[in-house]
Design a protein around this nucleic acid. Sequence first.
DNA 1: ATCTTTGCAAACTTTTTGCACCAAT
DNA 2: ATTGGTGCAAAAAGTTTGCAAAGAT
Lengths: 141, 141
Amino acid sequence: MSDAERLDGILAMLRERGGRLTTARRAIITALVGSRSHVTADELSATVRAAHPDVHLTTIYRCLDTLEEIGVVDHVHLGHGRAVYHLNDEIHQHLVCERCQAVVEVPDSLFDDLAARVKGRYGFTIRPHHFAVLGRCAACQ
Amino acid sequence: MSDAERLDGILAMLRERGGRLTTARRAIITALVGSRSHVTADELSATVRAAHPDVHLTTIYRCLDTLEEIGVVDHVHLGHGRAVYHLNDEIHQHLVCERCQAVVEVPDSLFDDLAARVKGRYGFTIRPHHFAVLGRCAACQ
DNA sequence: ATCTTTGCAAACTTTTTGCACCAAT
DNA sequence: ATTGGTGCAAAAAGTTTGCAAAGAT
């Protein structure tokens, strides 16, 4: 799936929801699709501003909220303070190095065992995608 | 180990490190030891203020920082925004319900398998205590 | 006497909100 | 013509910092 197709798909979902296809949204979603990884609202804002200097950070947040409601985007708290946003097309878990901040993405399936055990013993259903797991990456041991 | 012993132990560690035993610190650590679970800086401040109305929230933060440097306290980001602090004597992982905010503590050992696999495949060492795992508790399914 | 710790006020960072205007349908 | 989206400014929430005064050693 190309970036253009991805963009169109998201725009279509927005329209279905009764949303409007504004310049700002197009720019934000384009930037999000283009930046292939995890971005903070701030970073996204910088990218968007390159082409559309008038798009306000507030609008970024509101757009990301909307996309999250639709289920297209998810956000994760990687560290102290800021959150990062990413497209939701492949679900993965984040390992974040406490030292160098590197983000390692690992398949969700690694957590299946843990999830099953926690479910069995505590009745708790893990939804792991929302928070990062911290530690030390290979390079920083 | 009684609360009083625990308090004394922590005060001793502080002293060893060249720290001073102030009224504020005594009050904060007492409150921390007394409140048997996870507290936000704010909650801790409220408890401390009951007996010592003059201890400022800033001081709470600075004291918690110091205790964290010593290794006595750890803090965890349970949700969006505030962090919770807890004594470091039994290491456990936090499961937090996204709906009712309940905190379920589970033994660290549940994560051993996951940690081993992540270590093997990605060279990443998980230090899981720092962040919460989100999901739905038994009552909120 | 020294040097850490404290209180206070103010800054800071990230995110949210109120409101009048604009623009997509 | 609607009504949802946007920009702006300002508030909120949580935490940190600078500095002079207080307090522990």
